[in-house]
Computed example of a mutant assay.
Amino acid sequence: MIKKSISVSLLAVATSSLLVLGACGTTDSSSSDKKTDDTKTTQTTKETTTKTDEKALLDWSYSGSTGPSDWGSIKPAYKISDTGKKQSPINIETKDAKVDKAKVTLGYKYQPTMFKVTRKDKTVQAVAQAAKGRADSKVTIANKDYTLKEINIHTPSEHQLDGKDYAAELQLKHVSADNKTAIISVFVKQGDKNQAIGDMTSVIAKSENGSTTAMKQAVSTLGLIPEDSTVFTYDGSLTTPATTEGVTWYVYEKPITMSKEQLSDLTKQLSDNNRPVQKLNDRQVTSN
């Protein structure tokens, strides 16, 4: 069993929204017709620009000629997507996992945490915000502290268990003082509403491409961690370009739940933003 501890803090964060209004009229005069045509042209240009901007925010995507199978050829920095031997995500065959409890011991020092959510195309990065007078959320692994930096969300899940995927996957990225990365991954299935996530799902649903929005509610980060669950660990990589290796993954077997509405909020912006599973090669998956 993994022990968890939590403290409570309050923080209010204001958000802003963007409202765009457009209008046009008609008249019988030729000059007015020209103005109307110009207005329509301007509006069309703006719409085209917006759509183009949305597609151009990232130089990679989850489909087409810039999809996962072509990431390695987009530019040299992404080449490891093709050549790497420790790429993520993977399909975890639970029967093949080697039991080693000492290697999978996680000590949580999590706090309720505020996040700012940035969306770019079909990716979302929820960045943890420091709060005055309150410690950052951390997890201790092998006597080393890792600080929670961000949460990334994929729908459906990227990792699989015995060939099965889930409705969504939360990936909690942590970094140590010596710049080592550990990602704690939690599957999500449809069920009861998830109170721990705060207003993150609704913020994502309303997010504009390229925008950053501060959440109004804190995430009860400890509440995102499943109780009494088997945890699988392996050496892998980031799952988005440049898919850098040197990442230690901790994948929980037991999923948490979100309501149908919460999952719908996520898929409005993030549908099918999952990289396909990668070859395990000679890596060993360990469990507790």
Rank of each mutant, 00 (worst) to 15 (best):
Y250G: 10
Q284A: 11
T267K: 10
L57A: 06
E169G: 00
K101C: 04
P76D: 06
V124M: 10
N179I: 10
L19F: 13
I74M: 02
M200E: 03
Q190A: 15
D38H: 06
L222W: 11
E47A: 09
V127W: 05
D53P: 07
V219G: 11
T201E: 01
P276H: 01
L58S: 13
K86W: 06
T233Y: 03
H159Q: 13
T201Q: 01
N273Y: 02
D272Y: 09
T155G: 08
K216D: 13
V124R: 07
N288E: 10
R275H: 15
E253R: 08
P112V: 15
Y108C: 01
T113A: 04
T201M: 12
Q43W: 06
T243E: 07
V285M: 02
V13R: 11
S73N: 10
V139I: 08
A205W: 13
E150G: 08
S88M: 05
S207R: 02
K46W: 12
T44M: 09
H174G: 02
V8F: 14
V251M: 07
E93A: 14
G198I: 03
K51D: 03
V8W: 14
K164I: 14
I141S: 04
P76W: 12
T243M: 10
D272V: 13
F232G: 00
D38A: 14
D82P: 08
K101Y: 07
S220Y: 14
M258R: 09
G198V: 02
G210R: 04
E261S: 09
S31W: 10
K149Q: 14
G163T: 13
I92M: 06
E158G: 10
T233R: 00
N143C: 06
Q160E: 12
L224A: 04
Y166G: 07
D33H: 15
D100I: 00
H159Y: 15
H174D: 06
D282Y: 01
T212Y: 01
M200K: 00
P241N: 04
Q269H: 05
T201V: 08
R134S: 11
E253W: 00
A182K: 09
E47W: 05
E169T: 02
Q125M: 09
A135E: 14
A142Y: 11
D33T: 15
K86H: 09
P76M: 04
F115V: 14
I153G: 03
I184Q: 04
A205K: 14
K216N: 13
Q269P: 10
L238F: 12
G246Q: 08
S259L: 11
M215Q: 03
S137Y: 01
M215R: 03
A128R: 00
V251Y: 01
